[in-house]
Design a protein around this nucleic acid. Sequence first.
DNA 1: CCAACCTTGACACAACTGTGTCAGGGTGCG
DNA 2: CGCACCCTGACACAGTTGTGTCAAGGTTGG
Lengths: 128, 128
Amino acid sequence: MDALTIHEAAQTTGWSPRMLRYVERVGLVTTERSGAGYRLYGPAELQRLRTLRELLDEHELGLSDVAFARRLQSDAGLRAAVDGWLEATAERPEHVPAPDWLRWEQEKHSKLLAVASAQRPTTLMETR
Amino acid sequence: MDALTIHEAAQTTGWSPRMLRYVERVGLVTTERSGAGYRLYGPAELQRLRTLRELLDEHELGLSDVAFARRLQSDAGLRAAVDGWLEATAERPEHVPAPDWLRWEQEKHSKLLAVASAQRPTTLMETR
DNA sequence: CCAACCTTGACACAACTGTGTCAGGGTGCG
DNA sequence: CGCACCCTGACACAGTTGTGTCAAGGTTGG
């Protein structure tokens, strides 16, 4: 009874219906389906969607980043391989003189933020 | 001096010179520079480049994936936030009465956010 | 001195991400 | 029954990633 349809869920979470389907496709928030195949968003999914948005905004991530983190979580071998490689990096920081990549990444993020705020703030109410 | 120039390094690692500069730009393998600014690839860097290629090929990753994993590693707040969100995904507590686990998740996220902002500054730079 | 390197910067391009929108066809309810 | 919603699929488009290539200018070694 307390399950929302995709449009209702969109309005209460700040995502667009289109993005809710996309989020499902990348596997981050999936829902039950009604007999006719309608997505049913319960309180759990709504909460996950809100916290997901918070997570992305707060740390400047993309959905693909979270999807990869999830892959790291579920594939221990992958995690071991990646962590192992990174560990070797950490132990060999003899040259730390030019953190150019850091500035580059920051610039990218600022640009994304600028674009995001420059566009119409109608992500929630989009109509025609 | 047993340091190779970028072309020599490229030949022994399988990367192209172009990609070696790119790998440096995304911050995964950086080198020392000669007085004139030439990149100097020592045995350590060569090994890291070879294992990096192996890592990417064997798990079908991109450089950006590894870069993100590194970010997870160096920013504990980010890691806590992402892991926390993913943890909540793993369990689907349908048997638990809704208000309970919902509030539980909210609490967890507020706490994580608090932790994240508490230890935000300069988590990236001091890699020893 | 000169060829063969190196540097950064730029243009180019395919593949992927993120997002909107539209079309064709099914569903639910007053 | 219709209207408003849902579904999937597809076109569109900007921005990022991963690469190649080429230009203009500095460096090195024979």
